[in-house]
Simulated scan of single mutants.
Amino acid sequence: MNEEQVGRRRVGEAVLIAGPTASGKSALALELALATGGIVINADSMQVYRDLRIITARPTQDEEARAPHRLYGHVDAAVNFSAGAWVADAAKALDEAKTEGRPPIFVGGTGLYFKALTAGLSVVPPIPAELREDVRARLERNGAEALHAELARRDPRAAERLNLRDRTRIARALEVVEATGRSLLDWHREGQPPLLPKDGFRAVFLAPDRDALYARIDARFDAMLEAGALEEVERLSARQLDPLLPAMKAHGVPALIRHLRGELTLEQAATIGRADTRHYAKRQFTWFRHQLPAFEWVRPEEARRWLATAVNAAWESK
């Protein structure tokens, strides 16, 4: 793409670039931002954490300096950052783009963030910190099955939908019903409107060949280790944060922490990290296909042509 293909600084619909991890989304978003004068806005739930630049393959400092980037590395790992918090930050980034006359370019792989942008988000009141800590202490002391049994008594509908081993969601459902007296399912039915109107965006999902993608995931994990991912995780581990925090569950982090504790060899930890990332990519394909039908699926090698056509046509119509 060049400035003639996508008219520079034309402001119109937002561009949403999604896809599985390691599909080339960030590079494509940067190229589009350079061609249009746009602002790249992060829509990846792990790349918000400042502690996790390498292990989450966040854009480099040089890449961030080439075009405006927002919502990258702006949250401390000790924060239980939520989709609602991201929506609030994304709304500010959208306002900034509008004020500066720059097209907003959302890029990432977190389906819930894109769903919040395009379809709205349920609103759950903030959970008191002491209640959250109490639920997590009970989880560590009694185990997930005991907490699931407790949830089944308080909120049987939510409990029925949760796997007995899904520690994080069990704890979340229990803390919501204890704090609000209402089921998390009820809160999900009542939400806030989307940030983008139905005719206010063009959305693409990069869909590479699975085998090629998995090979790229494996190679990228090895490259991240060579770039200092283990040292990054070591610094994070030294903070002794709650293992249930989102940042502590980023792909590769738990296994590398086990290696640092002497429980796994580095190769064993890397094998787990690669496998976890491949499984996540598979879930991303499934989630976007069923939850976000408005996204047009294209192969990565066709994405530049798609953007040059779809984005230019949309902006010239304004």
Rank of each mutant, 00 (worst) to 15 (best):
L30T: 15
R157S: 09
P243R: 01
A207Y: 05
T168D: 12
D95H: 15
Q5V: 08
A33W: 03
M248F: 09
G7E: 12
A83I: 09
H251A: 14
E267Q: 14
R274Q: 09
L196R: 05
A171T: 04
Q47H: 11
R299G: 09
A314T: 13
E226S: 11
L184P: 00
E296M: 11
T286H: 13
N2Y: 14
P125M: 07
A179E: 11
I217P: 02
L241E: 10
G273K: 01
G111R: 03
P254N: 07
T21K: 08
W86E: 00
R210V: 13
N80I: 03
R165W: 10
D155P: 01
A77E: 00
L264S: 06
V176W: 02
Y72H: 06
I127R: 03
S82A: 08
L245N: 04
K249C: 05
P103D: 04
G181R: 03
E316D: 12
H251T: 10
L117T: 02
R304A: 10
R274M: 09
G109D: 01
P208I: 02
K318E: 09
L256R: 05
E232G: 01
P128Q: 08
V6K: 04
F114T: 01
F201H: 14
R289V: 12
K249Q: 15
R161E: 13
R261P: 04
A171S: 06
V311S: 00
L164A: 15
L264I: 11
Q291T: 09
F114C: 02
A67N: 03
I170C: 01
H251I: 07
L236G: 00
P193I: 07
S317N: 12
L94C: 03
E140F: 11
R8N: 11
A78M: 06
K198N: 14
T21Y: 07
L213W: 02
E301G: 07
Y72M: 09
R283N: 11
E100Y: 13
V176H: 03
W187N: 01
F288G: 00
H148S: 05
D211M: 14
L139E: 00
D51E: 15
I17T: 02
L225T: 00
K282L: 11
V40L: 10
A149T: 09
R182H: 13
A303E: 00
P59V: 05
G38T: 13
G24Q: 05
E263L: 06
A27V: 15
E64Q: 15
I17Q: 01
P246V: 06
G101F: 05
S122T: 10
L213F: 07
A137D: 10
V48F: 07
Q240T: 13
G12V: 11
R66L: 12
T168E: 12
S23M: 12
L241D: 04
D51K: 04
R261W: 07
W306D: 00
Q192Y: 12
R289C: 04
D95W: 11
F114V: 05
D276P: 03
G108Y: 02
G181P: 03
V75C: 04
F288M: 07
G7Y: 15
A179S: 15
A223P: 01
E178V: 05
E231H: 05
I257N: 04
N2W: 12
A144P: 15
L292P: 08
P197D: 09
K198W: 08
R153T: 13
Y72V: 14
A149F: 06
G24T: 09
V204W: 01
R305K: 14
L151A: 04
A238F: 08
T180H: 08
